Amino acid sequence: MTIDIPEAYQRALDDFGALVHRIGPEQWENPTPCVDWDVRALVNHVVGENLWAPVLLAGGTSADVGDAFEGDLLGDDPIKAFDTSAVPAIQAATGVRALDRLVHLPFGDVPGREYVTELFADALIHTWDLARAIGADERLDPELVEACAAWFSDAEPGYRQAATAGGQRETPPDTDAQTRLLASWGRRA
C-alpha cells in the first residue's frame, strides 16, 4: 500500500463524517446500497465500528465489551454521536504500536495493521453508500480508492468466504478504478 494506513483510515473517516454533517432531517430513513440499512442504520454501524476500535486496539475482546455497542448508538443527536465516536477511533488507530498489536476479533486474532486496514476499507465503501443515499457527490478520493483496491485484491477471497462483502459485480474492461472497487464490494455505481 502506497499510503500510510492510519492516514488512509483517518481521511476515509473524515470524508464519511463530512457527509454525516450534510444529512438532512428528512434523510435519516433514506435507503442505502447496504441491504436492510437506511441512513440511520448505516451511520449507527460506523459509530459502532468507531466505538470498538479503541477497545480492540488496546487489546480488549468482545467479551470485555459485552453488548454495550449493540442497538441504537446514535440517540437523539446522531451527528454528535458520530463526532464523539470518531476522535477516539482515530487516536487509537494512529497510536504508538497500534499496527503492531494483536487484535482479538470475534472470528480470530489479526495484526493491528490488518484491522485498521479493514476499518479504512469499511469507512471508504460506506462513504460511497452514504453519498448515494443522500444524493451527495459520490466521487471518492482516488488515492484512497487505489489503496483500498490494492489491499482488497489480496483480501477478497477471505471476505467472499466470510460473506462480508456483497457479491462481485461484473464491469467492462474500461471501467474506472472507483467503479471497479465498488463492484468488487457488490455495489452498482
Results as ranks from 00 to 15, higher is better:
G158F: 08
C148L: 10
A86L: 09
R139W: 05
A86I: 04
A123D: 05
A121Y: 02
V46M: 06
G158T: 11
F69T: 03
G158Q: 06
I125N: 03
L56N: 00
L73P: 01
A121I: 11
I90M: 10
A18G: 15
V145I: 11
I3S: 07
G135L: 15
K80V: 09
R101E: 08
V20S: 03
L73R: 05
P78A: 09
D67L: 13
Q168I: 15
Q91P: 01
T2M: 07
G112W: 03
A136I: 12
D100V: 04
P25M: 11
G167T: 13
R101W: 00
R188K: 13
P25W: 06
A149V: 07
I79N: 00
D76Q: 11
A92R: 05
W52K: 04
R187T: 10
E29S: 13
G135V: 13
F82I: 04
I79H: 03
D64C: 02
A177S: 14
R113N: 05
A89E: 00
P25N: 11
S62W: 09
T117V: 10
A150W: 07
Y115Q: 07
A98S: 15
L102E: 15
S85Y: 00
L74W: 11
A165F: 06
T175S: 15
E170T: 12
A177L: 12
P111K: 13
N44T: 10
G75S: 14
A163L: 13
I134R: 13
D72H: 11
W185A: 13
V116T: 07
A147R: 12
V20C: 09
P33V: 11
A165Y: 04
T127V: 02
L99P: 01
N44C: 06
E49R: 02
E143L: 14
W128M: 06
T171C: 12
G108D: 09
L130N: 06
P78L: 10
N44P: 09
G66V: 05
L119P: 02
H104E: 06
V35A: 15
F107M: 14
D129E: 12
A53S: 12
V145E: 07
I125D: 00
L124W: 03
G75V: 12
P172V: 11
R113P: 01
Q168G: 12
G95P: 07
L119H: 01
V96D: 08
F107P: 01
G135C: 14
V110D: 01
A165S: 13
P78N: 09
P31C: 04
A155P: 01
P172Q: 10
A86D: 02
D14Q: 09
V65I: 13
Q91C: 01
G66Y: 06
W151F: 15
E118C: 04
H45D: 07
T32I: 10
T2W: 02
I79Q: 13
W52R: 03
